[in-house]
Simulated scan of single mutants.
Amino acid sequence: MTNSTDSRTSLRRKVVIGAILATLAGAAFLAWNRLKPQGLPASIASGNGRIEATDIDVATRSSGRLKELLVKEGDDVTEGQVIARMDTATLDADLQRAQAQLKQAENSKTTAAAVLAQREQAVNTASAVVAQRQAEVNLATKQLQRTQELINKGFVSPQKLDEAQAQLAGAKAGLSAAQSQVAEARSAIVATKSQLVEADSVIATAQASLARVQADLNDTVLRAPRAGRVQVLAAQAGEVLGAGGRVVSLVDVGDVYMTFFLPETAAGRVAIGSDVRLVLDAAPQYVIPAKVSFVASVAQFTPKTVETTAERQKLVFKVRAQIDRALLERYRQQVKTGMPGMAYVRVQPDTPWPDKLATALPVQAYDKPSSAP
């Protein structure tokens, strides 16, 4: 008896569940039947999609502490606007050190240049001494020749010849010493020039270090890479972030589009630039104009083998409809991403749009004529 009762209870549960499922299916069918496009010509294809926009993450380049955050969620920012600043205490110290190193290198070059001038002057002085010693050698040589002639004629004693020879030898020794001083001074010039080249290298290195620190300092000021709207604040002032740490996420409300999918038979007739009409679920009374900016060249959800016509109908291609930037700028405050809707694309350019897909946009406050003061 117990088994019979349990069976009847189970049967009743199955009947109730079946009735509920049937009711839900019927409701879903009625909803779909009411929402699906009615009376569209064959020259217009449609697909459902969702409004999207280009997302931009503003992140740190180096690790550090977030000093201040200058925006909040929902703020509209312009290109180049300062969004946040990082703490720069460490980088300020690095900057001072790099500046000191550059100054030291420049002073070393100045000192080397002064030494080079001294070495060049020493060469000039030694060269003058060489000329003097050469003149003394020439004079001593002539005196030796005259003394030899006088000795040959018997006018002087042979002892004078020894004196003349000694004077000539002394003059030649002085000339050799002066020439050595010139060579030494010139070698010093070469060494000093090498020091100058090294000083230039040290200056270049210091300048590179200074530029790197300055670049790091510039990167501590986080700016909006393009105009957009703040969507997410991923960090708060005082937090320590690693390199590449996300601070703010922006959405470019001037780059808005809807991505939808069309079957192979329709996508094959869609061209770049084709007219599109977008109708959002949240505002079905408005029809937004757009144009096809992208049609995928590779199908998605493709079966492994495509042989029959029925299988080919399973091919779908991603299509993107871009909304005009001027229109987006006009309705900037109303732009919302993530909203679902329908996209209707004209696969035959000469086909007129049905009345229900004629462009219909909300009236802006500044579109109305202003009242007299």
Rank of each mutant, 00 (worst) to 15 (best):
T2G: 09
S10Q: 05
R12C: 05
K14I: 04
V15W: 07
I17L: 08
I17Y: 10
L30Q: 09
L35H: 12
K36S: 07
K36V: 02
Q38L: 12
L40E: 07
I44L: 06
A45G: 05
A53Y: 10
A53R: 01
A53N: 03
T60H: 07
R61C: 00
S62T: 12
S63I: 00
L69R: 04
L69Q: 03
D75T: 04
D75W: 09
D75E: 12
V77W: 03
G80H: 15
T88Q: 15
T90Y: 15
A93K: 15
L95H: 15
A105T: 02
N107E: 08
K109M: 13
T111A: 08
Q118R: 15
Q121S: 13
V123D: 02
A128S: 08
V130T: 09
Q132E: 14
A135P: 00
L139F: 14
R146A: 06
R146T: 00
T147P: 03
G154M: 07
K160D: 02
E163A: 15
Q165Y: 10
Q167T: 06
L168E: 11
A169W: 10
K172L: 14
A173Y: 04
A173T: 08
G174H: 13
V182A: 14
E184Y: 14
R186I: 02
S187F: 13
V190I: 13
T192K: 03
K193Y: 08
E198G: 06
V202I: 09
T205L: 06
Q207R: 14
A208Y: 08
S209D: 08
V213H: 09
D216R: 09
V221P: 05
L222I: 04
A235G: 06
A235N: 09
E239A: 14
L241N: 07
V247F: 13
S249Y: 09
V251R: 09
D252E: 12
V253T: 12
D255R: 05
M258P: 00
T259L: 10
F260V: 02
A266F: 03
A266L: 03
V270S: 06
I272F: 10
S274T: 00
S274V: 01
V276Y: 14
V279A: 03
A283G: 01
P289E: 00
K291A: 07
V295C: 11
K304N: 12
V306N: 13
V306M: 04
V306S: 07
T308G: 13
A310C: 09
A310G: 14
R312Y: 11
Q313C: 02
K314I: 00
K314S: 04
L315P: 00
L315V: 02
L315M: 07
F317H: 07
Q334L: 11
V335F: 14
V335Y: 09
T337F: 11
M339C: 02
M342Y: 02
A343Q: 01
W353C: 04
Q364T: 03
A365D: 08
Y366S: 06
K368L: 12
S370W: 11
A372H: 11
